[in-house]
Design a binder for these strands. Structure first.
Length: 565
DNA sequence: AATACGCACAACCGCATGTCG
DNA sequence: ACGACATGCGGTTGTGCGTAT
């Protein structure tokens, strides 16, 4: 290779800052690969004088290299404790996770990979990872992808959906996503479902819940990062496209689920949780086929208990045997909770929770719990969930059960259903609860239409609409929870600011803003926070006509979709 | 055998930031 | 406060090698 000779004045023009420049006349600076002799000179100099003063090094070592080049050579190749060779699996995993978290902050990533340089990591990413894109694979593995789908700094580019605070908890600037979270969060409204998931035996999961615990998440939500004695570890999960569900699901459980007692339920969960069989006439491979149309299935469920450090005692007589009998799912939901500690907390002392929480969402959730005043239904006799859901709270997508058990301590169980409204390529989706091969009956519950006066909504009997601007929400799989699920699904959908939907037969036209309900999307899009929405039970899958897309893109910050129990 | 291509790696370049006088 | 200098970071380009055609 030819040597490239730079004159000193050229170097200055090249932004070297003139380090050592302008003082020694014309200096020939070599470029290109380093020779062993040059390396030896550099190593000897650094060993004698230490790192730094790179321009001085250039002047005094006899190397015809600019200081910058010396620093780079030292940092990337010559300094001690450099780890050579291919990245290990662990390192690769870490890189992916770090990149999902930090973006292209190679130096920060390198700081967490001892012996590795930012350049190495950068090269790794630019080659191996981008190869995935060429192959049509997601940049991130599904669990990581979903994990960060709704990270507060993830934007939908070019629209009003930015939820970024632009700073992380340390106040550091967060990277622009620059499409790093690609299609999953595109402008159409990649709001989906963040989930806080605790250690819940899978057999506690309702059939119709779509739960993908992702314990690979390395950073538990702050509010519950250390429930020392409980099994309440928290993980976060975001919804993911149908096309990735099965894989991710399997991986998450098989690879990561740390609680052996959850294992036995895996098969049944998989079996009953994912009969997402594509209609022969419908292409569900949307990400590749129709990049603008994605379906998200979402559902989650959370429970969280109090750590014994809270030291709250439950007075005698206020215990509950949280066992269900009236409804199979209800009992399944509640009874399998493994005991926490002996900690107790009174409803009136729910604020105690706040000291472990910095989440406004959680706060409201707890307020809700308090508002319920821990009704006597639940303290005295087995209940099915529907009896606990009697509170007419149309303002929240979350319902919180307070479960107090003299043995198991106090738990809050929050559950909700949230619609993951995405444009999908089909007008119909499947009820994954239905394990038969036949298509379940879909119940459209809402029809949204845009008119000059704003958005109008109506309960719809149509299975699908031919209107160019519509959203139909299909209720999916809540029958075991409630005999008549449609009302609540409808009631919480796109609530107008000034008026609640009146009843299940009403319809109305509402101009102006629609209040984003406290569902996931609302929080994500408005507050940039999404940590405390949890939903099991049902998911609503929206059908979007293609023409709806621009409108939604413009209004999704205020039009929320969700369903509550 | 010649060529094209992809890949991995190394190095460079421009810019931003920090430090110091 | 300002400028000069030093350093660090991230994007980009260059190079060599292996493989496929």
């Amino acid at each position: 290779m030819d040597e490239v000779l730079l004159l000193q004045d050229e170097e200055e023009r090249n932004g070297e800052g003139g380090g050592g420049g302008g003082r020694g006349g014309r200096v020939l600076l070599k470029k290109g690969p380093w020779t062993a002799a040059e390396d030896a000179i550099l190593v000897a100099y650094v060993e004698k004088h230490g790192e730094g003063n790179w321009n001085s090094l250039q002047k005094h070592s006899g190397l015809s290299r600019c200081g910058k080049s010396c620093r780079l050579r030292w940092a990337n190749h010559l300094r001690p404790n450099l780890k050579k060779g291919a990245f290990t699996m662990d390192e690769e995993r870490l890189i992916i996770q770090l990149h999902a978290k930090l973006g292209n902050k190679w130096a920060r990533m390198a700081a967490q990979l001892p012996g590795r340089t930012d350049n190495e990591i950068k090269n790794y990413w630019n080659t191996r990872i981008k190869r995935r894109q060429r192959a049509g694979l997601p940049v991130y593995p599904p669990e990581v992808q979903s994990m960060h789908l709704l990270s507060p700094y993830v934007h939908s580019q070019g629209d009003a959906t930015s939820v970024s605070s632009n700073t992380d908890s340390d106040g550091d600037a967060l990277p622009s996503p620059k499409g790093q979270i690609p299609s999953l969060n595109h402008a159409m409204g990649g709001f989906s479902l963040p989930v806080v998931l605790c250690d819940i035996p899978l057999n506690a999961v309702p059939d119709n819940a779509l739960i993908v615990p992702s314990p690979s998440v390395t950073e538990p939500l702050q509010a519950f990062s250390s429930p020392s004695e409980s099994n309440c570890y928290l993980t976060e999960y975001k919804a993911m496209p149908f096309s990735q569900l099965s894989d991710a699901m399997t991986k998450c459980f098989e690879l990561h689920h740390p609680k052996p007692h959850c294992k036995p339920a895996l098969d049944s969960m998989l079996a009953r949780g994912f009969p997402l069989e594509p209609d022969p006439g419908i292409d569900f491979q949307f990400p590749g086929v129709q990049p603008n149309y994605h379906g998200f299935a979402s559902g989650s469920y959370s429970c969280f208990g109090l750590d014994s450090s809270l030291k709250q005692e439950l007075p005698s007589g206020q215990s509950v045997e949280a066992a269900g009998s009236a409804g199979a799912d209800a009992s399944a939901l509640i009874s399998p909770f493994t005991p926490l500690s002996s900690s107790k907390i009174l409803p009136s002392e729910a604020h105690t929770f706040e000291h472990v929480s910095n989440s406004g969402l959680l706060e409201s959730l707890l307020q809700e719990a308090e508002a319920k005043q821990w009704n006597s239904h639940f303290t005295s006799q087995p209940k099915d969930l529907s009896s606990v859901q009697t509170l007419d709270d149309h303002t929240s997508a979350n319902k919180t059960l307070r479960i107090e058990d003299s043995n198991a301590g106090t738990r809050f169980v929050s559950y909700a259903a949230t619609a993951a409204i995405q444009p999908i390529s089909s007008t119909q989706v499947y009820n994954w609860k239905n394990t038969s091969s036949s298509r379940p009956t879909l119940k459209p519950v809402i029809k949204l239409e845009e008119s000059s006066g704003g958005l109008s909504w109506a309960y719809s009997d149509l299975e699908s609409s031919t209107s160019p601007n519509y959203i139909s929400l299909y209720e999916m799989g809540v029958s075991e929870w409630d005999d008549g699920p449609a009302p609540y699904a409808a009631e919480t959908f796109a609530q107008p600011v000034a008026a609640e939907p009146e009843n299940s037969s009403s319809s109305g036209l509402h101009s102006g803003n629609y209040r984003a309900g406290p569902t996931v999307a609302g929080h994500v899009l408005e507050l940039g926070s999404c940590q405390w929405n949890n939903m099991p039970g049902a998911c609503l899958i929206g059908d979007f006509a293609a023409d709806w897309r621009p409108s939604i893109a413009a209004t999704q910050h205020s039009v929320d979709t969700g369903a509550i129990f």
